[in-house]
Simulated scan of single mutants.
Amino acid sequence: MNVAVLDDYLDVARACADWSRLPAGAMLQVFREPLVGEDVRARALAGFDVIVAMRERTAFPASLLERLPDLRLLVTTGMRNASIDLEACRRRGVTVCGTGAVGAPAAELTWALLLALLKRVPESDRALREGAWQTGLTQTVEGKRLGVVGLGKLGTQVARVGRAFGMEVVAWSPRLTAERAEAGGARLVDKHTLFSTSDVVTLHLVLGDGTRGVVGDAELRAMKRSAYLVNTSRAGLVDEAALLSALREERIAGAGLDVFSVEPLPRGHPLTTLPNTVLTPHLGYATRENFDVFYRDALEDILAWSTGQPIRALGTR
């Protein structure tokens, strides 16, 4: 058995699980650097029976799967991965399994970004290190309106923290009802009202055909000049070109972003040059606790599959 673990940027996969439990003779290879481009991926992954993918860092469309004839098991961390073509896996007899996860760390990071924006944490830290003192006023969170786009598990957690801070919380998503909004600690409003009246808009939708580009030029133009956008969900929810224009022209006050259209974000990307952004390198799920569960469960998936009894299978059997 040849096992590949992909996109271990921080070199933690080997320490997060006891890989010595793999069947006798199994070979484990951990890839730290991203495999950029389908040709590179096809060459690097040829000959592997088992691949462990970290979330959606590496895509597995049908075209790539066709070039991996030895692949029999594909494990994704988490129980959902839009970057894997499950139907193509089913056709090729590739079993796809997922893993558990811990808590809702992306919701926690949402608040880290939101508070960093309103409290000017990055600017103040830089100024203080350079010998300056109190270079600008911060803002109070209490009393502001928080607009939550998507009120599922993560959005609900963000909304409840907002209420604890004394914010007025409103919410919208394509199928959200007033009753579900209230249960999630928010008040349902229409999309335009949310974007035009919120002081902070935070995104927590699943990316799909109906939500891709849900925040475009019209939504950004509706926002107040004093408002902020926070996205710890998926980059595809936002028209990145429209966001860059809004930030450059200061039509919104700023943005806190953990997800990007190209990851890892290239050096010199326009977003990194703007003073009104707070950026993190897709850390929403990257916690020690989460990775311990990811890799522990991935190993369990491999062991169960090797005995002919796969667990946590995702729509391929």
Rank of each mutant, 00 (worst) to 15 (best):
residue 8 D to E: 11
residue 13 A to Y: 04
residue 14 R to E: 14
residue 17 A to P: 01
residue 22 L to D: 08
residue 24 A to Y: 06
residue 26 A to C: 02
residue 27 M to G: 15
residue 32 R to Q: 15
residue 32 R to C: 14
residue 41 R to I: 06
residue 48 F to Y: 14
residue 50 V to M: 03
residue 50 V to A: 06
residue 59 A to F: 13
residue 64 L to M: 05
residue 70 D to V: 06
residue 71 L to G: 04
residue 78 G to K: 04
residue 80 R to W: 06
residue 80 R to H: 07
residue 95 T to R: 15
residue 95 T to W: 13
residue 104 A to F: 09
residue 106 A to W: 05
residue 107 A to W: 05
residue 116 A to I: 07
residue 117 L to I: 00
residue 123 E to Y: 02
residue 126 R to V: 14
residue 126 R to Q: 13
residue 127 A to N: 11
residue 128 L to Q: 12
residue 128 L to I: 14
residue 133 W to T: 04
residue 138 T to H: 13
residue 146 L to V: 01
residue 150 G to M: 05
residue 151 L to M: 06
residue 160 R to Y: 07
residue 164 A to F: 06
residue 175 R to E: 14
residue 188 L to S: 00
residue 193 T to N: 04
residue 199 D to W: 04
residue 204 H to K: 03
residue 208 G to S: 13
residue 214 V to K: 05
residue 215 V to H: 04
residue 215 V to S: 03
residue 217 D to W: 10
residue 223 M to D: 00
residue 231 N to L: 04
residue 234 R to M: 08
residue 236 G to C: 07
residue 241 A to D: 14
residue 242 A to W: 02
residue 247 L to M: 00
residue 251 R to L: 15
residue 251 R to P: 07
residue 252 I to L: 10
residue 259 V to I: 02
residue 264 P to S: 04
residue 266 P to R: 12
residue 269 H to N: 12
residue 272 T to L: 13
residue 275 P to Y: 10
residue 283 L to P: 05
residue 286 A to P: 00
residue 288 R to M: 15
residue 289 E to W: 06
residue 293 V to D: 05
residue 295 Y to G: 01
residue 301 D to R: 08
residue 304 A to D: 06
residue 310 P to A: 02
